[in-house]
Design a protein around this nucleic acid. Structure first.
Length: 490
RNA sequence: GGUCCCAUCGUCUAGAGGCCUAGGACGUGGCCCUCUCAAGGCUAAAACACGGGUUCGAUUCCCGUUGGGACCGCCA
């Protein structure tokens, strides 16, 4: 008895378990919109202790490629959107679809359609020209199954018999009840004449088969949903909950596309964005939590709910992403940034491939630059003068600060530094202060020439920190070179 | 063209009938801090698309108009 009770209890728990999926089609890279959909699925699953499944919708064999499947997986991994099951591939599941189609055929819920794609295309054009609704007229609905010679099958697609009366209500977690008139519903093709299944059918079969409880996807699928609901019904399955996310738009308010610049998630990796920053940016499309802007992943999982997902589409704003990225760089552990920045240092030819670099030292250097870099590319570039042997003087900076006025004071500083044993920022500050006080100067007239001597330019972290990181030996070398650069006034 | 969705600063958004003189964030301007550049702090300009209702009272509820978007494939 107790045993039986346990089974019943388990049943309830299992049935209640949230199961969601991200179902991209591998006809391109993982893009911003797809990543947002994946993120909301991920967060909903994690928030509810459910399962997150990846399913590759590759039934369009002409456009799907292995490279894109890899690219999508790579993007998911980079964003750390880890999944529990899959990636499943629809092309591995044709037997499953075949079985379900046969079931519908035997139950008379579908019919064979002998209209050729060309005919259908022509009829659509005509309908559009006449301003009539573009809908299949159902002319093959009542035809007998046509047999070829010797009983071989004639090429035919299989259409689903949509009900033509009444209404279908989509109960959406974001939009509430959306009502569709059934007479608007098309008898859609669920299997092509070549025997391959189509999207609206496979999506239902797979969601049933994979026990998906919540279908979270883009707004662009809302109009397909009533048709899918009827397929669920024909198959005799329970209808999942739906959530249709608002679209992400480009600056011209059209759906975000390549025209608007970088849309691939990996492009942001290459531009020096941190995955957590992108995630944080993406989650704010539609979702909010009061006035809070920056969230850790744990907070996201804890707070996420469809109750605070908005309905309206939103424009992608690269400026804010950049700001978020800078905030994440500031908050990052310098050691972690040191790892992240390595490929960018190589790319910028600041270090060459395989070059050994003291990571401890690099972290210290990064610590001084974190709040000055908005991307890892900027961070890498600003590390240049720490790492390189010879700094390149900026002409303007050189003219303004490496001149007669600064020569003597640079020499004085050099002399002081030569005898310095504790080459640290606090000790350096003492030296600078004493020189400046002696000449009754502000710090600027000394710091700026030194800055140019050390970095080649006029912008850098605090000058004492910069010197400490560059080290005594290199500092002296650079001071010497700066002094020699200044033509003696003879 | 048909169907469906949406509508608060330039952008992302808060707002669940009186808490709204409409709040926060990015961006923009100013000031402060300061060895430069940042970061940070303070501050300014900046929005309820329009018209009808409902209500003692509408940003908030209803209807319409306008504007935007999506879908209408043997694509997903």
């Amino acid at each position: 008895m107790l045993y039986l009770k346990t089974i019943i209890y388990l049943e309830v728990v299992i049935n209640k378990m949230v199961r969601v999926r991200f179902a991209p089609s591998p006809t391109g890279h993982l893009h911003i919109g797809g990543a947002r959909t994946a993120l909301f699925n991920f967060l909903y699953a994690r928030h509810n202790n459910g399962k997150f499944i990846i399913r590759i919708e590759d039934t369009d064999r002409t456009r799907s490629t292995e490279e894109y499947i890899e690219a999508i997986i790579e993007g998911m991994k980079w964003l750390k959107l880890d999944w529990d099951e899959g990636p499943f591939r629809q092309t591995d599941r044709f037997d499953v679809y075949r079985n379900y189609v046969n079931k519908l055929v035997s139950e008379g819920k579908v019919y064979y359609c002998y209209c050729s794609p060309e005919e259908l295309e022509q009829r659509r054009k005509d309908a559009l020209a006449q301003g009539k609704p573009q809908k299949y007229d159902g002319r093959c609905r009542n035809k007998e199954r046509v047999q070829g010679s010797e009983g071989s099958r004639v090429q035919a697609a299989i259409r689903f018999k949509m009900p033509q009366e009444g209404q279908t209500i989509v109960d959406d977690m974001i939009r509430g009840k959306v009502i569709f008139e059934n007479e608007q519903l098309d008898d859609l093709i669920i299997m092509r004449s070549d025997g391959s299944p189509t999207y609206n059918f496979t999506v239902v079969v797979d969601d049933v088969d994979m026990k998906i409880t919540h279908v979270i996807r883009g707004d662009d699928h809302l109009n397909n949903t009533p048709k899918q609901i009827h397929i669920y019904k024909a198959l005799g399955y329970e209808i999942p909950k739906f959530a249709h996310l608002p679209m992400i738009l480009g600056s011209d308010k059209a759906r975000l596309s390549k025209r608007h610049g970088a849309t691939s998630v990996m492009a942001y990796k290459e531009m020096g964005y941190l995955p957590d920053a992108l995630i944080n940016y993406l989650v704010r499309f539609g979702w909010s939590y009061g006035d809070k802007e920056i969230f850790t992943r744990e907070e996201l999982i804890k707070y996420f709910s469809f109750e605070n997902v908005g309905k309206s589409s939103a424009v992608f704003n690269p400026e804010k992403l950049l700001w978020l990225n800078s905030q994440y760089i500031i908050k990052s552990d310098p050691k972690e940034l040191a790892e992240f920045v390595m490929p960018f240092l190589e790319n910028a030819d600041i270090i060459h491939k395989g070059q050994a670099i003291d990571m401890e030292w690099l972290s210290k250097a990064i610590k001084t630059l974190q709040e000055r870099a908005k991307t890892l590319i900027e961070l890498a570039n600003s590390l240049r003068y720490y790492i390189t042997e010879n700094v390149q003087y900026d002409e303007k900076a050189k003219a303004k600060f490496l001149n007669e006025k600064s020569r003597d004071i640079l020499i004085e500083l050099k002399n002081h530094i030569e005898s310095l044993t504790d080459f640290s920022a606090p000790e350096l500050e003492k030296i600078f202060q004493s020189i400046v006080e002696k000449h009754n100067l502000k710090l600027g007239p000394l710091a700026q020439p030194v800055r140019v001597a050390m970095t080649g330019g006029t912008e850098s972290p605090g000058i004492f920190e910069v010197l400490e990181i560059i080290g005594k030996e290199k500092t002296l070398k650079r001071l010497d070179r700066a002094i020699k650069t200044i033509e003696p006034n003879l």
